[in-house]
Design a protein around this nucleic acid. Structure first.
Lengths: 140, 140
DNA sequence: CGGGATCCTGCAAGATACTG
DNA sequence: CAGTATCTTGCAGGATCCCG
């Protein structure tokens, strides 16, 4: 039940429901988006439909196993559709479903934020790690 | 370098850079957001600053270990700040940094999408699993 | 109270090989 | 080409105890 209450209020609601993993949209959906590969695959498919090996090349360091599994997860959630062309050899095309397309706007806004903030985050990490190291040095 | 090119174009750029994990904002930032706990903690802190054990209660099924670690990750990325009050016993307060606050808008839009789409996703999952099962049954 | 250190385990995911 | 099946392992993360 989406509503326009501030996040803080909704957090209280989720909390009241014990954050039931089955019921909580944040956990259900963010777990998928945050998956190492799924959001990358969604973006890859946002450009255009692609075939299995095309995706494999597009995302170089994913294993065939994980690619298959990630695609099936996305399909199971209804974010992408899978079309088999019974050619020889077979070819399979994946494309965003309408639901998947509807995810792109919020996902893009998050990616925008990520790109805008990346420099600050890197700087913060460097500072944090430097402080950590110098403490170790001081302690040693 | 944030820009207003469509995601598809930016994907090609990332790809050209080999998706270097150190350089790619998507991987760097989404990995954190998608973390099982961090986004939940951000939302919890969006309401108001909270202390360690308060957060522990707010997110019931996180272990102390993971809470500590998630908070340190968020602090390292500069999304939250940590304030130690040398009372007895000590109390530590966490709160969103300006950078963390700037993340809330895109995060909220994603959560909105999640809540709006959750019913569809659940339905899709159910249909997918049912098809799977019936195939097994048919095969058996 | 707010952690750190240590031990231990399960499962996520890589590597490899096979198939329609 | 587009996957499955099996085996194997690393390490995320829980449980427990300790400490200032």
């Amino acid at each position: 039940m989406p509503n326009d209450a501030p996040l803080a209020t909704r957090f209280d609601e989720w909390q009241a429901q014990g954050f039931d993993a089955e019921a909580c949209p944040v956990r259900n959906v963010l777990d998928r988006i945050g998956d190492k590969w799924t959001s990358l695959l969604l973006v890859a498919l946002a450009a255009k439909p692609r075939r299995f090996s095309e995706l494999h090349r597009a995302v170089p360091d994913i294993s065939k196993r994980m690619l298959t599994q990630s695609l099936r997860d996305l399909q199971r959630d209804g974010l992408i559709t899978r079309h088999v062309f019974p050619t020889k050899p077979p070819s399979v095309e994946y494309r965003l479903s309408p639901l998947g397309q509807s995810a792109m706007a919020p996902l893009a806004s998050l990616i925008d934020w990520a790109e805008r903030s990346f420099a600050k985050i890197k700087a913060s990490r460097a500072a944090f790690d430097a402080a950590d190291t110098s403490e170790h040095v001081a302690a040693a």
